[in-house]
Nucleic acid binder design. Structure first.
Length: 593
RNA sequence: CGGGAUGUGGCGCAGCCUGGUAGCGCACCUGCUUUGGGAGCAGGGGGUCGGGAGUUCGAAUCUCCCCAUCCCGACCA
């Protein structure tokens, strides 16, 4: 039983000024957490109970799936991270430190290397696999910008599991087991979520999926279909290509003098303002134009290569989508020096005829999937102040391929069913993906197969943000009055309030009731504080968010047999008067579901 | 890392422009009253005014540098 008269708790009447999102505000106001460092929080007694409940659910589901828990140091030497290249690759996000002998150490941002080395240390036969081990540990990342309280800190708790298999089929099975365990976990935690594919089909559709809690406070944008179940990370959306059209009946393309039209907007205005260029059937719109943007790709080996991307003129190139497509190469904007090195490219008037392998520039040219054979475009003529009208894809130019780089918008067609997509916000609470052999190769994790050959182990990596999930649940379940925990992770089942002055029959009755509930296995948060007005107690009960609130007030008299208490559902606000003699049984039933 | 804002008791804020040794509400302590929706009265404790340097007889206030926090963006296995 938790007694509020002695509980280490102080609730705040005002919102803390530095808290923006609801979960941060309410967790601080309710005395669940306290900021202790930039991006770091202290868990107070109520918060720690909630945190441990979340951790328990995660652990129970991992154990039920047959996975085994291990625990690593957070303080790690440099060497393993050097071997995989991450000592440098991780950049400023890695917390680095030095010991007294000037050896380099780091605070683990994640433990791939340690898991891999641990298995290498102990196992060497295919007979030992498959294996899944996991950890629930504090991770450290020197985030450029910690924010939103627990949702994005520099120190946070993650559950990370790793699977080890000899072949791809085994990896797929390990992946599927995790997916099922995650579904059970997040269902129990009471979080609204979607599973989105986090990588494009080109990389293998099921290789990576994210579990996103669907919250407006989330920092990830994803798309979902307004009529079917399709949902995907923006990076993973594949634009449905229209049917190719015949090219034979299209009129020849003509070069038009279009002075001072380096942008799509003033090009469209110019076309509509001149009779000889106007469309007979309707006005020109931005979607009739083809915009060609050139980037420099920097490959991991240090070499660079220009890449031209063609998208319909009403859309921009989405850098994040482009990055996902060209990874591990990194795209950079085409600078003045780059234009100087390619004089065939007229800035603002770049056209397909100067692009593509075999063209004058030889620059690789990839277009949006909407640019199919037979579509007609207004696009650059590669001469300053000139555009081509009616250039036909597949007849007048042939790109080197397609690329998913155009931005995705609400209302775009769903790749699965063709209905309208909508954009929504979410926060990543879980991520499962098939790592493959990257770490096993770098660190030499091999086993002998049945034929006595050395084979490199293939791995999967599966994370859940445990501390983040606490905030996500708070975010998903709160209302205007305060927090509103799902019973499974609430700090108590029942918040018992004495609403009367000290010394009255209510106090004695409530004491007996609290003890009886305790004996019955109902978790009680007992507001036995004296000298407070009832308003304060009611407000605190609503702020703290225990799912059932019981009030011992004016229904309680000296005659226990005829006394009643009020039982209120925190979420629905629904209240019923229950005879005091029946209330333990009543609450036991309420708390059972 | 770029843009903006803010740092004053535990929390929320005023004071700064126009320098004179710090104030309000909440919370906390004592007493009395009050008790079904963040009580009333009276008394009280608590602050290196983010840090450093400077100007000045005198700095929360003016100047310079630094630090931190928050918001937007960039970044985010």
């Amino acid at each position: 039983m938790l007694r509020m008269s002695t509980l280490f708790l102080r609730t705040l009447r005002d919102d803390p000024a530095d808290a923006e999102v609801a979960s941060h505000r309410l967790l601080v106001r309710g005395g669940y957490v306290r900021r202790a460092a930039p991006g770091g929080f202290t868990w107070l007694p109520l918060g720690w109970i909630v945190y441990r409940n979340v951790e328990r659910v995660v652990r129970e589901e991992m154990d039920a799936a047959g996975f085994q828990e291990v625990h690593f140091p957070a303080l790690l030497p440099r060497e393993p991270y050097e071997a995989t290249g991450r000592w440098t690759e991780y950049g400023d996000t890695l917390f680095r430190l030095t010991d007294r002998r000037h050896n380099d150490f780091l605070l683990a941002p994640t433990h791939e290397e340690m898991f891999t080395l641990l298995v290498k240390d102990l196992y060497s036969s295919y007979r030992d696999l498959p294996l899944v081990i996991y950890q629930i540990q504090t991770k450290y990342r020197d985030e450029a910008r910690p924010r939103a309280g627990l949702l994005r800190g520099r120190e946070f708790v993650m559950k990370d599991s790793y699977s080890f298999d000899v072949d791809d089929e085994g990896l797929q099975r390990s992946y599927d087991r995790h997916r099922a365990a995650y579904v059970r976990t997040f269902d129990r935690l009471g979080l609204p979520y979607v599973i989105v594919s986090a990588m494009s089909g080109a990389m293998g559709g099921s290789a990576s999926e994210e579990f996103l809690a669907t919250l407006d406070a989330g920092e990830d944008t994803f798309v979902r279909c307004t009529s079917c179940s399709f949902a995907a990370n923006v990076e993973a959306v594949e634009v449905p290509a229209p049917e190719p059209q015949p090219v034979a009946d299209a009129p020849d393309a003509v070069v038009a003098d279009t002075p001072d039209t380096p942008t799509i907007a003033n090009l469209v205005d110019f076309l509509n303002a001149h009779d000889h260029l106007r469309r007979p059937d309707r006005d020109w719109v931005a979607a009739d134009t083809l915009k060609n943007v050139v980037f420099t790709l920097r490959h991991p080996d240090g070499t660079t290569e220009p890449l031209a991307v063609g998208v319909p003129g009403d859309r921009d190139v989405d850098l994040r989508r482009l990055e996902a497509q060209v990874a591990p190469a990194v795209p950079e904007a085409f600078g003045e020096a780059d234009f100087a090195a390619h004089p065939q490219l007229a800035k603002g008037y770049i056209g397909p005829e100067a692009l593509g392998i075999g063209s004058t520039t030889g620059i690789r040219y990839l277009v949006d999937p909407r640019v199919v054979t037979g579509t007609r475009w207004v696009t650059g003529a590669n001469i300053a102040g000139h555009h081509v009208v009616g250039l036909v894809a597949g007849r007048d130019f042939t790109p080197d391929g397609t690329i998913e780089a155009a931005d995705v918008r609400a209302g775009d067609a769903c790749p699965a069913c063709g209905s309208a997509l909508e954009l929504a916000r979410g926060i990543e609470i879980g991520h499962i993906f098939q790592l493959g052999r990257k770490y096993a190769e770098a660190l030499g994790l091999t086993v002998l197969d049945a034929d006595g050959h050395q084979v490199t182990v293939t791995m999967g990596s599966y994370g859940i943000g445990v501390s983040r999930a606490v905030a996500a649940i708070a975010e998903a379940t709160h209302d205007e009055s305060g927090l509103c925990w799902p019973r499974e992770i609430a700090p108590a089942d029942v918040h018992l309030v004495v609403a009367a002055k000290a010394g009255g029959p209510q106090t004695a009755a409530a004491e007996r009731l609290a003890a009886a509930l305790d004996d019955a296995g109902v978790r009680v948060l007992f507001d036995d504080r004296e000298g407070l007005s009832v308003g304060v107690k009611f407000k605190d009960a609503e702020l703290l968010g225990v799912p059932t609130i019981v009030v011992a007030g004016r229904g309680v008299t000296d005659d226990a047999a005829s006394s009643t208490v009020e039982v209120k559902d925190r979420r629905t606000g629904e209240r019923v008067d229950v005879p005091l003699v029946e209330v333990v049984e009543h609450l036991r039933a309420v708390c059972a579901h």
